[in-house]
Every structure is written in structure tokens, then in C-alpha cells.
Nucleic acid binder design. Sequence first.
DNA 1: CCGGATCCCGCTTGATACTG
DNA 2: CAGTATCAAGCGGGATCCGG
Lengths: 133, 133
Amino acid sequence: MATTTAKQHQELAKQRYDDFVAECPTRQLLDRISDKWVSLVLIALADGPRRYAEINRAIAGVSPKMLTQTLRTLERDGLVERRITAEVPVRVDYELTALGRSLQPVLSVIKSWAEARMDDVLTARARYDGVSP
Amino acid sequence: MATTTAKQHQELAKQRYDDFVAECPTRQLLDRISDKWVSLVLIALADGPRRYAEINRAIAGVSPKMLTQTLRTLERDGLVERRITAEVPVRVDYELTALGRSLQPVLSVIKSWAEARMDDVLTARARYDGVSP
DNA sequence: CCGGATCCCGCTTGATACTG
DNA sequence: CAGTATCAAGCGGGATCCGG
């Protein structure tokens, strides 16, 4: 044995990164809020509770599967609360928890920087592409 | 023809999302900073200029390819400056631009929330998994 | 009406080897 | 030293169909 170096190295590297992710809160938070739909859902729920179908309509282009998956993750992480009302047909509302609401200022900061500086980024990008297209 | 509905739908949805991304600064910023290596590079450069190999050593588990790719993207976006010194062998330094440095407070806010509240998220997660494993 | 299960495709990641 | 070229694989994200 002792000849599986390649695969072993790969697994070790991946393991190291996984361990790092597992213990780095910032990494975890970034992974959460950078999820394709998470920020949109958080915004959709900012003004109060919403039904599943409402959120689905509010966010253009999200598939039911991804919306459910996103909401489940947020519920699991204690950022969103899921409330089922036994009507016919069933009614399901989603609402931000206190923890979820505490995240809003963070998103707000991100949004502020983006709106203030993203133009500079775009300009730099265009210049870079112009020099070596 | 007129039977390629699946693929067409997919492409339309992707297109809609791409259009949205193209015009939403926040989405763009999130996509940038949430990149696997971007935040690590930004942190590595926080204290001043660094050479390629230094960064490579500072960040465990990054392949040359991904490091280069990350640095190129950051350079393109005007967040990092690349400076080549004609020595033998060649010397290349990377340094945050003013724009790049202006991003640090944003990362700082994210980090603060993560360190303060991520435990709550982890707790909620454990509870959720405990209820329905 | 809500959302779980399954299959599948394409993109990104990353290891590895090579060059100026 | 500072990258580029190539190639394989894993996985995110979506369509589609089915159950509660």
C-alpha cells in the first residue's frame, strides 16, 4: 500500500477545508446568506408573515422545490418560523424569528456597500475587459 | 418542433435569474464575497501587500489554479492590485486597493454577527434535528 | 395547496503536470 | 517563482411526478 497518495491528498485537503468550515462562523454565515434564494426569502419576509404561495409569487423564477428547500434550511437554522393553520385547504405561513430579524441589519450593510460601490466595481471590470478582451 | 419545452423553460428561468443578477448590486456583491476563497484572500491581504507564494502558503488547501482565478477576479473588479517587479525570478505582489479596503468593514459586520449569533443558529439546528432526525 | 422523492444535466472545483 | 493546460468528478439546482 502507501501508494494512494493522490486520492489521499485530495481527501485530506477537502477534510481540512470541511473542518475549517465547520468551525468558522463567518464561513458558515456567508454560506447561508449567499445561497441563491436565501436573501430573497429574507427580504420577502421582512415586512411580516407570508404564505408559501405569496413568497413563491414574490420571487420570480424560483422553483417550488428550491423554495421549500430554502425555507426548510432557514427554519432549521432558527431564522424563520413555520406556522401551519389547519384549514381546508391547509394554510402555511412563514415568518422571521427574532434571530432572523437580527440578521437584517447585516444584509442592510451589505446592500448599502453594494449600492454605493458596485458601480466602481463595474467600471473597473469594464476597464479591465477593455484592456485585455 | 415546439417540443423542447423542458430545456427552453430552463433556459428562460436561468435567463431571468441572470438578468436579475446583472442588475442587482447586492446579489453581485454576495456572489463575490461568498466565493469560497475570496474572503480568505481579502483577509490574507488585510495587513498589506503579499506575494503570490505567501498567499498560497497562508491559505491552506488552495490550488494554484483557484488562487490565480480568485486573484484575477478580484483584480478585474478593482478590489486588488497586481504589481509585477522585473527581478530574476519574477516577483508579483498583490495589494488591496482603496475599494478593496472599503469592503473590510462590511466583512467585519458579517464576522461580528457570525461570532455573536452563530451559536444560536447551531443550537436551533441541533434542536430541529433532534425533533425530527 | 404544500411539499417530498427521484432523476438528471451542466458548471465549477480541484488534482496534476508542464512552461516562461 | 508564478502561473497555464488539461481532464475528471462532485454537486447544486431544476424538471417532473407523486403523496398528504
